[in-house]
Amino acid sequence: MPDLAWMAWTWQTAIFFSVIAVLLLVMTALAIFYPETERIGVLRIPTTRGDRLFISLIGSAFINLAWLGLVGPDLWWSLGLSLVYAAAVFRYV
């Protein structure tokens, strides 16, 4: 096991990256077992599941930052909001 002390891991960030890694693995599995075609949603651009994941993640980052800057440090609410946003992106975009 290499020494990873220089990366300054915390369990919180480890969970964060694990969730993203799991999402990528799920996406890969979906792409292999359930191939898809692009579709055009409310943004009028063709998107795949991967595109929608990207839009969800980057949008969630901005939702959380906006919540932190405008409302306060209680980010569970903005996490919930992000999940709603992600669901909407996967449904309509």
């Binding site: 002390a5 220089w6 990366m7 300054a8 891991w9 915390t10 919180q12 960030t13 964060f16 990256f17 932190l68 440090p73 980010l75």
Partner: peptide, 23 residues
């Protein structure tokens, strides 16, 4: 990039010692 994310939630006074600072 992962290291930067780890740094961003902590404070350090050097010597590879880090203290949790949340957001």
């Amino acid at each position: 990039l992962m290291t930067v994310v780890n740094y961003s939630v902590q404070d350090s006074f050097g010597n590879n010692q880090f203290f949790w600072n949340g957001v």
